[in-house]
Design a protein around this nucleic acid. Sequence first.
RNA 1: GGCGCCAUCUUCUAAUGGUUAGGAAGCUGGUUUUUCACACCAGAGAUACGGGUUCGAUUCCCGUUGGCGCUACCA
Length: 483
Amino acid sequence: MKTDVRVRIAPSPTGNLHVGTARTALYNYLYAKRHNGTFILRLEDTDEERSKETYTKDIIDGLKWLGLNWDEGLDIGGPYAPYRQTEKIDHYSTMANHLISSGKAYLCYATQEELAALKEEQKATNAAPRYDNRGRETSAEQAKQFEDEGRIPSVRFIVEEPQVVSWHDHIKGEIAIDTSDLGGDMVIVKSNGVAIYNFAVVIDDIDMKMTHVIRGEDHIHNTAKQLLIYEAMNQKAPEFAHAPLIFDIEHQKLSKRKHGETVHIDYYRAQGYMPEAIVNYLAQMSFTHPEGKEIYDLEEAAAVFDLDKVSKSPAVFDVARLNWFNSHYIRSLPLDLIVSRATPFLTAYDTSTYTAAQLAAIVASVRDGLTTLSELTAAVKFYFDPLTIPAEVAQDVLSSDNAKKVLNTMLNALGTMPWDDHQGCKKAVDAFGKEISLKGKELYWPVRAALSGKTQGPDLGSIISILGAERVKSRLEAALTHK
RNA sequence: GGCGCCAUCUUCUAAUGGUUAGGAAGCUGGUUUUUCACACCAGAGAUACGGGUUCGAUUCCCGUUGGCGCUACCA
């Protein structure tokens, strides 16, 4: 049974899914699940210049990939459609007209040039930049004259000053802002007829019956402005919670401009990060599991999430820590899942020479040492490509008499090798090692180097078993040709 | 410039008006392993500063400093 809790993530399709957006989506998702409410995806695409359909697709894909599925919204519809602001332009205008007729807003004929001049003037006198509310006084005659000049008005909402707007923030506590610091009467509909963010959000949140708005703290001043609009429209405002920002290592807001693709979820996806790791990492920064657990999934997070347990201070996005989560999940998620996710990282190789079971064994043999799946490509190379043994490895490991003895002995023992049993393969090596009185490094290293070209790597038994009779034989013979 | 938010190890954080200020990542050392990784053990590492309130403050209050954010006909 659903409660009336309704929350949303309302991204703007002006870029691919941002880490910060994903974190906000996660909080909203967790809050909805925790309270058995409804999680909604809505698109704030009123910026026609920057909005692109490919970004919309990336955002939808990314959220789904993370498992943050919505109950209502963009691609699935719902009772409060449309969930895309560009489809509600007329509706916003209608609502703005209501505000005009009730004296809460007015048409502003100021040109961009006039506003720019005002700003210059304020800058010169070191005054706070703001609109001087000159449009409030516009008479009917003036308006007509402006119209005749061809000026197209915007709609401004009257911000009464001074006045204190305050609310109880579910994360930050009490917040109070004086309307005098809001920059004057604010545009709610641009002269091109399209509503501005601060207005459209309010209308949408009213239309969609949102009960809680959980978003980044960079919106705190917007919240003050929006609260004024709720009041002017005689509507009950939702509850607000402003989450701390995510910083980079230099304590700056994570931004596309400064950090490029590393602020986007699909960057991590392409690198072979597990969605489970990203969700876990995102959840545990600024929020701590009540039992102090570090590793937990979406479902468990939803069971314990609480806004008042969210930290007030910003968190640094620390890739080293993300990496720890990721390597944990690469090691512990079901093998078949890891194998299927590994496919994109094996395209450089001809995987048809192995059976599905062997491919799984290949992934299993190397997964423990991986931080991201993208490292898989290099890690499994020796299973596929013709082997070249680096000169220094050959020199150090394969040139001794003992090494040649090991390789020759193994060559002769190949007939009795239990190929399908990696533990058996290891035992077989131990057994012939005993015959020639060699063990440990002296025994294993030549074999390892001959088969993989490296002195470190997966379990030797696994290497032998996976490579199989033919490859092992030819690689041993090839290794013996080294001087 | 104005306004707002924030302040515990390098990083993510826990806790409490009285604790040896706890955990995790990273780092260092060790154990284990044929090697690497994992795992395990150990070590170094923090309450920004100054005033109050109090028997007692890291915790509550004020100030300072610092960091960050917002200040568009972007969202």
